[in-house]
Amino acid sequence: MTVRFILSEYVEQALAKALYDKLEDNTFVGRIPECQGVVAFGSTLRECEDELRSTLEEWILLGLKLGHSLPVIDSIDLNKEPTLEPMDTL
């Protein structure tokens, strides 16, 4: 049985769409075009990637808490109401 964590999958799919640029001062900027406002900076590409992941995770959690509509990424829709499974299926 494969366990599927929807938030983890959403984060991974969103990060796969990230765009990175090297700036004139040799630092990096990363963004995810589908996720408006998700931008991060770092002195190295790895630092920028880590910061972008953290920014994305916080952006998702805040969006869910505030009831914002989040973009559907690779058919993962976090805007749907969760369905509850009966306890006996656990």
Rank of each mutant, 00 (worst) to 15 (best):
N26V: 03
P82G: 04
L64I: 11
P71V: 14
S43F: 05
Y10Q: 14
T2I: 05
E51D: 09
G63K: 10
Q36V: 12
S69F: 09
I60V: 09
C48T: 12
E51K: 01
L19K: 11
N79L: 04
Y20L: 13
L78Y: 06
L62P: 01
Q13W: 13
V39N: 02
Q13K: 14
C35P: 01
I6V: 11
L78D: 07
Y20E: 11
Q13Y: 14
G67C: 09
M1G: 06
S8A: 12
T55M: 04
V72K: 05
E24S: 08
E85T: 08
Q13E: 14
L23M: 13
K22D: 13
P82T: 08
I32D: 02
E47W: 02
L45Q: 10
L64E: 00
E85N: 06
T27L: 03
V29R: 02
T83L: 09
A14C: 11
V3F: 00
Y20T: 04
T55D: 10
K22Y: 11
E51P: 02
F5Q: 13
R31Q: 06
A40F: 04
E57I: 13
D77I: 14
E34N: 07
K65D: 15
A16V: 07
K17Y: 15
L23F: 08
L84D: 06
E81V: 10
G42E: 05
R4S: 07
I6T: 13
G63T: 07
T27C: 05
I76M: 13
L66E: 11
G30D: 06
R31H: 05
A18W: 09
V11Y: 15
F28Q: 05
V38C: 06
E24C: 03
H68F: 11
A14D: 14
E57F: 00
C35H: 02
V29F: 00
D21H: 10
V3C: 01
M87R: 00
L70R: 04
E58C: 06
W59L: 07
W59D: 09
D88M: 01
E51A: 04
V72D: 11
G37C: 02
P71M: 13
L15K: 15
S69C: 08
E58D: 15
D88Y: 00
P82A: 11
A40Q: 01
T44C: 10
P82K: 11
S8C: 14
G67N: 07
W59C: 12
L70V: 14
R4T: 10
T55Q: 07
F5T: 08
I60C: 06
V11T: 07
L90D: 01
L78K: 09
D77G: 10
T83S: 02
S54P: 00
A18I: 13
L84T: 07
T55V: 10
P82W: 05
V29C: 00
V29H: 01
E49M: 08
G42C: 04
L61E: 14
R31F: 00
I76G: 02
V11M: 10
W59Q: 10
M87Y: 00
R53G: 08
L56R: 02
V39W: 03
K17T: 12
E57Q: 12
C35N: 07
E47Y: 03
S43G: 04
S54Y: 00
D77C: 12
T2N: 04
L15Q: 15
I6R: 09
I32Y: 03
N26E: 15
L19Q: 14
S43I: 04
R4G: 02
V11Q: 05
M87K: 00
R53M: 01
I76V: 12
H68G: 11
W59N: 12
G67L: 06
T2C: 00
E47F: 02
D25K: 01
L70Q: 05
